[in-house]
Nucleic acid binder design. Structure first.
Length: 359
DNA sequence: TCTGGGGTCCTAGGACCC
DNA sequence: TCTGGGGTCCTAGGACCC
């Protein structure tokens, strides 16, 4: 088992609202909620992220915006400005990268660093973490929390342990104790559904999980059961690596009100395709599969796909195929909530293969 | 409470090939 | 007469992550 590495996970604190508060000093210290338009409580959509001040009112990420409005009507509600967040993210990632050649960006606001060859022990790693936190705060005015451990799993769980602006160090000898007390829901890949199944099996904490026979987990969850068992013991051999290849690209839209007019559907498909086709060209990507997604007013969701025998980047093929695929769902007396278009089966140009695209 | 938008990965069944 | 087996590709649905 390789637990002689020292891995760091750096996670921005309430990233979107923090950027907004940085740009609007008058919003500092106030509940800022980034997400859909609340429309006086009648809005559709969810909270993307909210400031710590908003969390005091019970507002949480992924909560319906209408519920957030009920809890915190005096909040400052802002539509996400991804271009801005991506710019700030780029600057922060550039700062972090300098500290190790083994760097991996996992999302717009978090990254791993393998600092095994950069520090001699965990004490030095902790000092390095403080340096990185201060540099990000000084240069970009954003706070982050850091977790340090012998692998990516422990580092990630540790960065989440003390927030905001916390640092949590979990040495190899402390891994068992640290992880065993956590709720299973904290483990990556265990969401609400899996948690509920585990709870029904009498498994609530990681310690409970560690005591279950792997066979039972594999029988219940397939290969993921095996991974669950490994995680329960704090094992994660995966490397910190920047290698990444984009697998699909698309857009989707939820209508402000459910509709049944095919004309609106077709126009929306055109708009969605126009948007991401630009990206496709900029990235020099070809595709051979086109899929559509449609969601009815009762949230019932369907997908349809078609794969060609050739790769192309043709915009008209996407639009025509998407409209054909969507046709059977129209004029059947059902209202539509969402429509989406996506391309996959990608062929990337050589230069693109090593570049990481994070949205 | 009434569920965004960008993605990834997994599963299961069917087609097809050798 | 009672139905091979392995591999790959495709489709559709679903869970999950940030």
């Amino acid at each position: 088992m390789v637990d002689n590495r020292i891995i760091m996970h750096i996670d921005m604190d309430a990233f979107f609202p923090s950027v907004e508060q940085r740009e609007h000093p008058e919003w500092r210290g106030k509940p800022v909620i980034v997400g859909a338009d609340p429309r006086e409580g009648k809005g559709r959509g969810v909270v993307a992220s909210c400031s710590y001040e908003a969390r005091e009112f019970g507002v949480r990420s992924a909560m319906p915006i209408s519920e957030a409005w009920k809890l915190c009507p005096q909040g400052i509600y802002v539509r996400p400005n991804f271009e801005l967040y991506e710019k700030v993210s780029y600057n922060i990632m550039s700062l972090i990268k300098k500290y190790s050649d083994k760097f991996e960006q996992v999302s717009i606001d978090e990254a791993f660093l393998d600092v095994t060859n950069k520090v001699k022990d965990y004490e030095e790693a902790e000092k390095l973490a403080e340096r990185i936190k201060k540099e990000i705060l000084n240069k970009e005015k954003i706070t982050c929390s850091v977790g340090i451990g012998p692998n990516k799993l422990i580092a990630k769980l540790a960065s989440d342990y003390k927030k905001p602006y916390g640092t949590t160090v979990v040495k190899p000898e402390d891994v068992k104790l640290f992880i065993s007390r956590l709720n299973v829901r904290k483990l990556p890949g265990i969401g609400p559904k899996t948690e509920s199944v585990l709870n029904k099996m009498g498994i609530k904490t990681v310690d409970d999980l560690a005591k279950v026979d792997v066979k039972i987990l594999v029988d219940t969850f397939g290969v993921f059961g095996y991974r669950m068992h490994e995680m329960s013991l704090g094992i994660d051999e995966s490397e910190v690596t920047e290698e990444y290849e984009i697998k699909s690209l698309g857009r989707e839209k939820t209508f402000e009100e459910d509709i049944d007019d095919p004309e609106i559907i077709f126009n929306t498909i055109d708009e969605l395709v126009d948007e991401f086709h630009e990206e496709l060209l900029a990235l020099d990507i070809q595709f051979k599969t086109i899929s559509i997604k449609i969601r009815f007013e009762n949230f019932e969701t369907h997908t349809r796909a078609r794969t060609f025998e050739f790769y192309t980047k043709d915009k008209k093929i996407i639009k025509d195929t998407a409209k054909e695929l969507v046709q059977p769902f129209l004029n059947i007396g059902r209202k539509i909530r969402l429509i989406g278009v996506r391309v996959s089966g990608l062929k990337l140009s050589e230069k693109q293969k090593t570049l990481k695209e994070i949205t």
